[in-house]
C-alpha cells in the first residue's frame, strides 16, 4: 500500500497527545492584538453611548402605538398628500433611471480598461468614484441649495447616483466579457461603433437589463427619503406625518413603499429570468 510511508510524522509521537484545531490566525501576537483590540473597542464604544433610558421607556408607548398603527393604517385622512407624494416619487424614479442609464452606458464603455484609452478611462473612473463616494442625501442637499426645492433636485440626485452604480458594474461586466467573441467581430473589419454594437452589446445586454431594474428599485426606495431635505417625493409627506405623530399615515405610506418594492422585485425576477 503506497500510503504506509510516513512523511516525517511518527504515529507513536502523536498518540496520547491532545489535539487542538489550528487557530484561524497563525501568528499568536497578531491573534492576541486583534482579540484585545476588539474587546477594548467594544468597551469604549459601549461606554461612549449615552442612552437616556427614561426617555426610551417613555417612548415605548409611542412605539407600541406605531406597531398598532400597522394593523389599521390610515390611507384616507391625508390621501391627497400621499397620492401627490407618491406620484412625484414615481416620476422622479422613472425619469432619473432612464436618464441615469442613458448617461451610464457611454461612461461604462469609457471606464472599461479593455476597450477605452487611458485618459478616457481615468476620467470615467473619476466620475464613477465621485458619484459613489457621495451619499444621495448629501448630493440632494447640495442640489436643493443650487436648484431650489422640488423634484428637479431629486431627479438630478438620483440620476447622478445611478451613474456611479450602473456604470461601475457595467464596466466590470465589459471587462469580464468574452474576448474571442469581440475579436471575431473586430476581425470582420467593423468600425468601433459597429464593434460595440455587435461584439460587446449582446454580451452585456442581459446584465444591463437586470441592473437597470435593480436600480429602478433602489431609486424608488431612495426617492422616498429625498423629500426629507426638500428634494421632492413622498419623503416630505412622511416627515410631516412623523412630526405630527400621525402613525396611521406613516404606516400607510410605509406599507405602500413596501408593496411597491415587493412588486418591483417580483417584476425584476420575471424579467431577469426572461432575458437570460
Amino acid at each position: 500500500m503506497s500510503g504506509s510511508v510516513d512523511i516525517g510524522v511518527k504515529l507513536s509521537s502523536r498518540l496520547g497527545k491532545p489535539w487542538r484545531k489550528p487557530p484561524f490566525i497563525n501568528s499568536a501576537p497578531l491573534r492576541w492584538t486583534l482579540l484585545i483590540g476588539t474587546v477594548v473597542y467594544l468597551i469604549l464604544a459601549f461606554s461612549s453611548f449615552e442612552v437616556n433610558w427614561s426617555r426610551v421607556y417613555a417612548g415605548l408607548e409611542r412605539g407600541w402605538r406605531f406597531i398598532v398603527a400597522f394593523s389599521q393604517p390610515d390611507f384616507t385622512s391625508r390621501s391627497s398628500d400621499i397620492i401627490e407624494g407618491m406620484t412625484e416619487s414615481v416620476i422622479m424614479t422613472v425619469t432619473s433611471t432612464v436618464v441615469g442609464i442613458a448617461i451610464s452606458i457611454p461612461i461604462a464603455l469609457g471606464a472599461a480598461s479593455n476597450i477605452a484609452p487611458m485618459p478616457i478611462y481615468l476620467a470615467c473612473r473619476f466620475i464613477i468614484s465621485i458619484s459613489r463616494a457621495l451619499n444621495e442625501i448629501i448630493v440632494a442637499i447640495l442640489f436643493v441649495a443650487i436648484f431650489g426645492f422640488g423634484p428637479l433636485a431629486g431627479f438630478l440626485t438620483l440620476s447622478f447616483a445611478t451613474i456611479g452604480f450602473l456604470a461601475k458594474l457595467l464596466a466590470e461586466d465589459i471587462e469580464d466579457m468574452n474576448k474571442v467573441q469581440a475579436e471575431a467581430v473586430k476581425s470582420t473589419g467593423a468600425s468601433w461603433l459597429q464593434w460595440v454594437n455587435f461584439g460587446v452589446q449582446p454580451q452585456i445586454m442581459p446584465r444591463l437589463i437586470g441592473l437597470s431594474i435593480y436600480r429602478l428599485d433602489i431609486n424608488f426606495r431612495e426617492s422616498a427619503v429625498l423629500g426629507l431635505v426638500g428634494a421632492g417625493g413622498i419623503g416630505a409627506t412622511l416627515n410631516t406625518a412623523f412630526d405630527r405623530y400621525e402613525f396611521g399615515t406613516v404606516a400607510a405610506i410605509l406599507i405602500i413603499i413596501i408593496v411597491v418594492v415587493m412588486a418591483l422585485e417580483y417584476l425584476s425576477g420575471i424579467i431577469r429570468a426572461r432575458v437570460k
Binding site: 406605531f66 442625501i137 427619503v225 416627515n239 406613516v250 410605509l254 413603499i257 413596501i258
Partner: peptide, 10 residues
C-alpha cells in the same frame, strides 16, 4: 424596503 433614514426618523 425602508431606507435607514426613515427608520431613523421613526
Amino acid at each position: 424596503s425602508v431606507n435607514s433614514l426613515i427608520w431613523a426618523l421613526l
